[in-house]
Each structure stands twice: as structure tokens, then as C-alpha cells.
Amino acid sequence: MSERIAVKHTMDLAWRYASGEAMERFCADLSDRRIEALRCGGCGRRYLPPRPFCGNCRLRMTERVPVRDVGTLVAWTVVHTPILDGRTGEPRPAPYGMGLIRLDGADTTLNHYLAEADPARLRVGSRVRAVWRPALRGAMDDILHFEVLS
């Protein structure tokens, strides 16, 4: 085929998103270093971050239960090819650790960053603790990452 023409462009997409009540309360609590899960009245499952309803039981959840900022590593990876940060569009410096963490007092798991990026030092079942930002802002990244407890 002869010459191929292509158009190149960058689309700037503005977005606006309303949190809803459960996430608003969760974020407000974070600025006091407090974490609470919502417990389903049907199955008893404690959801963290809190969801407005339990998808399995199709019930709205209102009962709040306390959660600690220490928990157990359920799954982990060390990322070498970072994805773009959805907030900034910039890649996170690699390598970095990520984990699924079940905090004491919750039944679901959080995905979050890990301070550790050495595969030899990461193990399913390890105990981990949240490392908080010094000046809390009431957002999910008030927890900077989780560190593995020896």
C-alpha cells in the first residue's frame, strides 16, 4: 500500500465523581486515623472500604464496626512495569510492591502499596501495618503504604 495517513491527538478528559455517603464518612474518618468497616446484616461480612450495599445479599449496610490499621498480607506482587497513575497520568517509579491486605476486623481485602519491593521478603500470610502520611488529608492515600512486620 502507498502512504498511510494517521491523525495523532491528545484528549483531555475532565471528570467529576460523587462519593456517596459511605465513602464520604470513610474519608473523613481517615483524617482522624480511624478506620471503620460496614457489616452486612445478611451475611455478616465486614466490607472495607465500606460499600453502600452488599452485592451478594443485595442489602444496604448501616452497621459500623472498628478496624485496626494492622492486618495480614493475602496476596502480593512486585511491579516492574508500572501502570499510569489514574490521578496524574504519570507512572509510579518501579519496582514497587503491591498487596491485598485483610485488616484485622474486616473480611474483604484492600489493594495497596507495600514499602517492601524484594520478592524474597514478601510472603502470603505476613503481618503488615499501615504507614500514615504525617499530615492527613481525608483521602485514601493518607495511608502511604503498608510495611511488613518482622
Binding site: Y17, T77, I83, G86, R87, D141
Partner: peptide
């Protein structure tokens, strides 16, 4: 793929 829930997933998207 990064355009997920802005309050939770976008801060810790994998």
C-alpha cells in the same frame, strides 16, 4: 483501565 473509582481504586490502581 485506570479510569476506575476515583476515591479508592484510582489512588492504588494496579
Amino acid at each position: 483501565m485506570a479510569l476506575t473509582d476515583p476515591f479508592w481504586d484510582r489512588a492504588v490502581a494496579s
